[in-house]
Nucleic acid binder design. Structure first.
Lengths: 257, 257
DNA sequence: CGGGAAGTTGAAGAGCGTCAAAAGTAGTGG
DNA sequence: CCACTACTTTTGACGCTCTTCAACTTCCCG
């Protein structure tokens, strides 16, 4: 049943075992050829500052379904995603799950104010991350105020996105949730230089349900419904074309037919 | 019908009219006698730095139901709450509302990365706020890195709280939502030096519903249910005693009977 | 191909929303 | 102080959306 790869970080006990998987193909100056830097907060750094960053980074690869860290685990590391897709989520004791975000190249995760992580993180596809020791990264923040300012800006953007998601979870219908989700995913893809419309949907129906507060069945039924209404087309289960952005937008905002 | 006081800031049109209501009782050095400073981010400042802050602050009073600013209005100002209670919320075009947070003394609001506010803010009770011009406050952040660091910390805490709220909205039952809400409100009151258990509930049932993604009727019914189960007692409609914190906690976490 | 996971579809039921009305509460003015 | 009004809260009846459970189909990878 449990075919998931073992976690990168095992914080189950009191020991803080690190089983880092260094990529063989990782260059000596890891940040040099980085493709996502212009979009990531690293863009706030000069090239000298960047080499300070490069000194403390460990490029790491994750297999699909491989956990990166667990809620309540000691928050000793901090990450940038440079390729692939991840999900972060919280669990209730009985197994109910709320996915609070999907992360793609240029996103970061693991920034905790507390000593433990507030959520779990797991790879969806094959994923590459840049790993930093928390302490070293915080030292860097002290030395490079521009980096800290950028981080504050991103944190604020995420807060705004979280509030938008609360509106979705608290007040939108299943149809409106799906429309909002696809629209947001498509816009983020466009903004971050990934292919948009058709938009890549790396997560499965169960993940989408746990992100939108719906069951997998309702997600599936709603996709079918929108497909029959010729509002969207599934080019494959993981690639969706939005046929009329205006209509989808009006559905997402609650004005839809 | 519309008995709400006029907004403090009118950003309806293109004009940016400021109708600030200076409190007559506001002292010349407004931050000097501030009661909430130890809890607010101002605690990161030395007394010299504090006087720089005091130079640019305008203490302002709000009547119950008085709007402070509106979603999409130009984000020119930034606020600390020093007394009272406020709510921040987002609306859908058809009037559905999601309250994304309740704010009390020592909380701040209005920090936007964009040129416009991402949510509306309105006083629940008579409320006092410290008002800053955004530009001046940002200059202060550049001069006092400790203040910026503190702000980043608070933003991170709020992000964690937002994720907890997503779990609530996406995956918890009405009973679990009410239990989580009362527990969180009680804990925050204790943490911020307000009276806890009985906890002060300044918002009405409709506000609670719009915060928890429920109808007012369901909020009322659930209160009645928990009251009959002798889990909580209403000392008045705005003062609730939690009779068994352990039971309430287990309900909030989804283990409740 | 073949087996297992992921996705879809159907039927039935639960939980919460909606509508409606009663009860409680607060503010106002005689 | 009490009556009048308006709003908030509570309670009840009913219906709808979404969940649950189950069976079936499709997809994917060895």
């Amino acid at each position: 049943m449990d075919r998931a790869p073992r976690p990168l970080i095992d914080n189950g006990g009191s020991s803080t075992l690190l089983r880092a998987i260094s990529r063989p193909e990782a260059p000596c100056v890891p940040c040099g050829p980085c493709q996502v830097r212009p979009l990531a907060i690293c863009s706030a750094l000069t090239s000298e500052e960047l080499s300070s960053l490069a000194n403390i980074v460990s490029p790491t690869g994750l297999a699909p379904r491989q956990p990166l860290f667990d809620e309540r685990g000691a928050a000793t590391l901090f990450f940038f995603v440079t390729a692939g897709a991840m999900k972060i989520y919280k669990l209730l004791p009985d197994g109910r799950r709320q996915i609070t975000g999907f992360l793609f190249a240029s996103d970061f995760l693991g920034l905790a104010q507390t000593s433990t992580y507030a959520y779990s993180a797991e790879a969806i596809t094959r994923t590459d991350v840049c790993r930093f020791r928390r302490k070293e990264f915080e030292d860097l923040l002290d030395r490079f105020p521009r980096l800290e300012k950028k981080l504050l800006g991103v944190a604020n953007d995420e807060l705004a996105a979280a509030q938008e998601q609360m509106l979705l979870l608290g007040r939108k219908s299943a149809r409106e949730r799906i429309a909002s989700f696809l629209l947001a995913l498509n816009e983020k893809a466009a903004r971050c230089g990934r292919s948009s419309n058709p938009v890549w949907i790396p997560m499965n129906r169960s993940d989408i349900g746990d992100y939108l507060g719906l069951s997998t069945e309702t997600v599936s039924r709603t996709f079918t419904e929108l497909k029959l209404a010729r509002i969207l087309a599934l080019e494959s289960n993981s690639k969706i074309r939005l046929l009329d952005l205006d209509v989808i937008e009006s559905i997402a905002d609650g004005n839809g037919a």
